[in-house]
Simulated assay, not measured.
Amino acid sequence: MTVILLRHGVSASNTARTLAGRSTGVDLTDRGREQAQAVAARLGALPIERVVASPLLRCHRTVAPLAEKLGLEPEVDEALVEVDYGEWTGRALEELVKEPLWKVVQRHASGAVFPGGEGLAQVQQRAVAAIRARDRALAAERGRDVLWLACSHGDVIKSVLADAFGIHLDGFQRIVVEPASISVIRYTPTAPFVWRVNDTGTDLSALAAIAQQQGEKASEPVPGGEVGAAASTDNGNAQRPDARSE
């Protein structure tokens, strides 16, 4: 069984440099809508048999063009929802980077619990359980291999990939998952195999931006998302103004 993990496209929170978390009504930007159409064009010819998404609007907007092209009705899976960032929700990243918890999120993710929210270890547990359970259910239902897609959020996808790689959650910040990127995991009876990570097709613009940062301060991931040169520029991602975390 093979699952395509799709991160939603660029959202309004990405460009506002805030941590959207589970805030309702956070929609895609024009760039995000373009990405959603590009995903549909790129994946529309594949034999995808199920499309599942986080209940948040930005994920629904991202999968809608693809689901329409495939003739499928997207299913909602609450277990794929964004991290509950609790009191951090809605705050600017330039403020959050000053919090003591920030360094814990970067270096000891398994011990990070957001005030009034959930811990990253909890996020991994629920997300991995949901992906594996749905994978088993599809295998039992169809009696054969099935290609399906799950649309979720940066930290959620990274935690699932860490599990598939067999690495500790404390290392998951080393995985980069950009908006509208796909990562692919094939689950077998013995072990999962990672086929793709952060695949954005022919768009390599992020590489040029990374090269331009040589000599700057080493960058760190922001909660929920990519690597960036501190949170003062585009929610922690100086490489791409539209590449935010949730």
Rank of each mutant, 00 (worst) to 15 (best):
Y85C: 05
F114W: 12
L138H: 02
L204M: 11
E95Q: 13
G71A: 05
S219R: 12
Y85V: 03
G90H: 08
A36Y: 07
A38I: 06
A191E: 15
V160Y: 07
A209Y: 02
E226I: 11
L43A: 00
G236Q: 07
H153L: 09
D135H: 12
Q173D: 13
R42L: 05
R61H: 11
R196M: 15
A162R: 02
G215C: 02
F172S: 13
W148V: 11
R50N: 01
Y85Q: 02
F193E: 15
A180D: 04
L72P: 08
L66C: 05
S245D: 11
D155A: 15
A53V: 10
Q122A: 14
K69P: 03
A20H: 01
G9E: 01
H8F: 07
F172V: 13
D203A: 06
T188E: 10
R33M: 08
G90I: 05
L147K: 01
T190Q: 13
A164D: 12
G224N: 07
R144K: 15
M1Q: 08
H60N: 07
L70H: 08
T233L: 14
V105I: 13
V227A: 13
R91L: 14
R196K: 13
G236K: 06
L66S: 04
W195P: 00
W148Q: 07
G166H: 11
E246L: 06
A20W: 01
A64E: 14
G154V: 12
L66I: 03
D155L: 13
A41S: 12
T62D: 09
S152Q: 09
S11R: 00
Q213I: 03
H108R: 15
V160N: 04
T190K: 11
M1N: 05
V184S: 11
G143K: 10
L43Q: 03
P55L: 14
D199S: 09
